[in-house]
């Protein structure tokens, strides 16, 4: 984190909208990637990113400069995504009784690979087989490179619980992806 960004954050904390705009420009792509991986849905990810930035602006006055801005933004994004997906899930259940993201889907239920293997789709399906906490913990660890302690802080759980969530997620992903590994 450069000094320039620290200055920008300080200005944004003080209420400078232009400074906050800089932060939006800087972090929007990364926020979208995280939101998309959490939701597996492009339009949902768009909504989550916008909502998360609006929340970030409202809360930025409480941001503590000694902590990491990236972790802080990730926490807001994860929480926003969870709220969004729960709402969507409830709405879909009400409408069709078939939620778009069913955290209860077991890895064993993921379609096995056939001649037309699409690894990306299978990975996506495997991700959908994870619970909210498993999925979030795995994404923050695997793709965002946070340490387990940081993931625990972002998800507001204990380090032990975070480790267990990652272990469970990894086990499920391995079961789902194992048939696709070429030997």
């Amino acid at each position: 984190m450069g000094q320039t960004e620290q200055k920008i954050i300080r200005k944004a904390v003080a209420g400078d909208r232009a400074a906050f705009r800089e932060l939006v420009l800087e972090h929007s792509h990364a926020m979208f990637r995280l939101a998309w991986r959490l939701s597996s849905n492009e339009s949902a990810a768009e909504d989550i990113v916008q909502e998360a930035f609006i929340k970030a602006w409202r809360k930025i006055g409480s941001f503590r400069m000694e902590s990491s801005f990236k972790s802080w933004l990730h926490r807001i994004t994860v929480n926003t995504a969870m709220d969004y997906l729960r709402k969507q899930s409830r709405r879909k259940k009400f409408e069709t009784e078939e939620p778009e993201w069913d955290p209860g889907l077991k890895s064993a239920e993921i379609p096995s690979h056939d001649t037309q293997i699409d690894i990306r789709k299978q990975t996506e399906a495997a991700m959908k087989g994870l619970s909210e906490i498993e999925r979030s913990a795995l994404l923050l660890k695997h793709f965002e490179g946070h340490s387990i302690n940081e993931v625990a802080q972002i998800l507001e759980i204990t380090t032990g619980a975070c480790k267990q969530a990652i272990f469970r997620a990894v086990k499920k992903m391995r079961i789902a992806l194992r048939p696709l590994v070429t030997t």
Partner: peptide, 30 residues
């Protein structure tokens, strides 16, 4: 990023949580 800004900027006039503590500047690298 500019698209996102355009979409969210009209909604940024809501209530903000103000900073109460003294700012210490140190951002840990992740």
């Amino acid at each position: 990023g500019a698209d996102i800004w355009q979409k969210i900027s009209p909604h940024l006039d809501g209530e903000r949580v103000e900073s109460s503590s003294r700012i210490k500047i140190w951002l840990a690298s992740l």
